[in-house]
Nucleic acid binder design. Structure first.
Length: 483
RNA sequence: UCCUCCUUAGCUCAGUUGGUUAGAGCAUCUGACUGUUAAUCAGAGGGUCCUAGGUUCAAGUCCUAGAGGGGGAGCCA
């Protein structure tokens, strides 16, 4: 007999199968009952909801049912019936029970009760077994799929940019070195420095901090491309928004200017949010309720103004606010918290980078919508960004989301060889080592633009979770590479 | 890296001014109950109070150092 997934039994297929003999396999969530009848809530990961399996104790020997604990894997054959109880439409009357894998209740750490997220993080190998993390990971799948589908529908090509990179000049952050040299006794040059010409690649190599520069190479031939791959930053960042290993989406499009870039980013975010709303309503509702429950413990002023599902719909249906850095500085200068000196970093002069508290004020208090900020001072942005005619600003755009801060960072790229070269010299980027990048501006250079979207930051927003370590299955952070 | 808070039973947490034998709920085990929904009810077992020093007649409680974790900041996606 072939196994049927619980999602199908609890979905549209269920009613048709009432009265027939079926097989289900899954993991026990809870067991309850009395001497005569037992109820097991069975979950197989195909959906959030459990299937209720009913055991008649006069049929099943107690010795086997004794092994049915939370966490145990079982296979059950029986007849699907309309439920006598109130909690569910259908249930399974068990005829045959097989305990596939026992779970010793004295050792199994996941109980049918609320665990703290901190505790579950230390048991990340088992936290998939909880409602919260199974919901998060199903949503993660839908989001990944939606991103690929969006770009595919728009005619983009997916490009695999290298994970190991020989360039350390991207300036996006500290890098993890990749080397096969013996760490205790590496070959050295006469001056005592490590001789990387003897290393595996014959030079220093690192894990990538961004696929953007390589994506630009592809865009200047294939037109519309995107990368979606792992990214590594060796920054000692200990926050709820940073990971040492995370996944990034980086589209790059030839003949796009900054406005096309903003349109693309806004459309993409709305598309994937709508997709998840459509594909995972139960999981989202569960997380929404969970969040609401959690917020009951918070003071009124710290509570989110909207419930999760409501918030996602709001973002999907409303136009993002677009404004310039210069206008944002004016708004902040004249804002109440600035005048009352409530900002930790007061806003006085044009040219300073915006702090988290400023971004949060703009998004959550002033506009109360996602905000796209453009035309930042060139001093606080990367070397490859297109310089405006004012000589002061670059065509950069950051998308700020409530509760998350910066979720997208992008720009139109500088396509004029001389301007790019000059900016690289000014910012001490080694131009010889980056000749392959400069070549694109020598041969058939065109205006182009792109952006980077931190996938886990998007996950934070969509799931409403507060810590980035809970939206990736196995988080890598400073001092933590378990599992 | 900086600031701040936390660490007591398997889990979540109480523990008063330093004072007798460190408690509760859930989980586990035993028993009761013929349809439960995180079942309910009764009973039992379960503790290196994070670690190492120190103060004191007396430390879970006070002090110092360390470890681990949370939150915030910086860097950023």
């Amino acid at each position: 007999m072939k196994r049927i997934e619980i999602a199908k039994l609890l979905g549209t297929v269920g009613p048709e199968l009432i009265g027939t003999e079926i097989l289900v396999q899954g993991w026990v969530r809870t067991k309850r009952g009395n001497k005569f009848v037992g109820f097991v809530a069975l979950n197989d990961g195909s959906c959030l909801a459990n299937l209720q399996v009913v055991f008649d104790f006069s049929v099943h020997p107690e010795s086997i049912l004794h092994k049915v604990h939370s966490g145990a894997a079982i296979a059950v054959r029986g007849k699907l019936t309309a439920s006598e109880g109130g909690g569910q439409q259908v249930e399974l009357q068990a005829n045959q029970l097989e305990v596939i894998g026992e779970a010793n209740p004295d050792e199994y750490p996941i109980q049918p009760k609320k665990h703290s997220l901190e505790f579950l993080r230390e048991h990340a190998h088992l936290r998939f077994r909880t409602n919260t993390f199974s919901a998060i990971n199903r949503i993660r799948h839908h989001l990944i799929f939606a991103i690929h589908q969006f770009f595919n529908e728009q005619g983009f090509y997916n490009i695999h940019t290298p994970i190991i990179t020989g360039s350390d000049a991207e300036g996006a952050g500290e890098m993890f070195r990749v080397s096969t040299l013996p760490p205790d006794n590496p070959p050295r040059r006469e001056d005592g420095s490590i001789d990387y010409s003897k290393d595996f690649f014959g030079k220093e190599t690192n894990l990538t901090v961004s696929g953007q520069l390589e994506a630009e190479l592809a865009a200047l031939a294939l037109g519309k491309v995107y990368t979606f791959g792992p990214t590594f930053r060796a920054e000692n960042s200990n926050t709820t928004r940073h990971l040492a290993e995370f996944w990034m989406i980086e589209p790059e499009v030839a003949f796009f200017d900054i406005h096309d870039d903003m349109d693309l980013a806004e459309n993409m975010l709305k598309y994937v949010i709508r997709y998840v709303l459509d594909q995972a309503p139960e999981d989202l509702q569960f997380l929404s309720n969970r969040l609401k429950e959690e917020e009951k413990n918070k003071p009124e002023k710290d509570r989110a103004p909207m419930e999760l599902v409501e918030k996602l719909k709001f973002v999907a249906e409303n136009t993002f606010v677009r404004t310039t850095y210069t206008e944002a500085i004016e708004i902040l200068k004249n804002s109440k918290p600035n005048k009352k000196k409530q900002f930790q970093f007061p806003v006085d002069a044009w040219g300073a980078d915006l702090q988290s508290e400023h971004e949060r004020y703009l998004v959550e208090k002033h506009f109360q919508k996602p905000v796209i900020l453009t035309d930042y001072p060139k001093e606080i942005k990367a070397f490859y960004m297109k310089q405006n005619d004012d000589g002061k600003t670059v065509r950069a755009m950051d998308i700020l989301f409530p509760g998350i801060g910066e979720i997208v960072g992008g720009s139109q790229r500088e396509e004029v060889y001389e301007k790019l070269h000059q900016r690289m010299v000014e910012m001490h980027i080694p131009t010889e080592e980056m000749s392959w990048y400069l070549d694109t501006r020598k041969f058939g250079s065109v205006p182009h633009a792109g952006f980077g979207l931190g996938f886990e930051r998007l996950m934070l927003f969509v799931t409403g979770m507060g810590n980035i370590r809970d939206v990736i299955p196995f988080p890598r952070t400073p001092k933590n590479a378990e599992f």
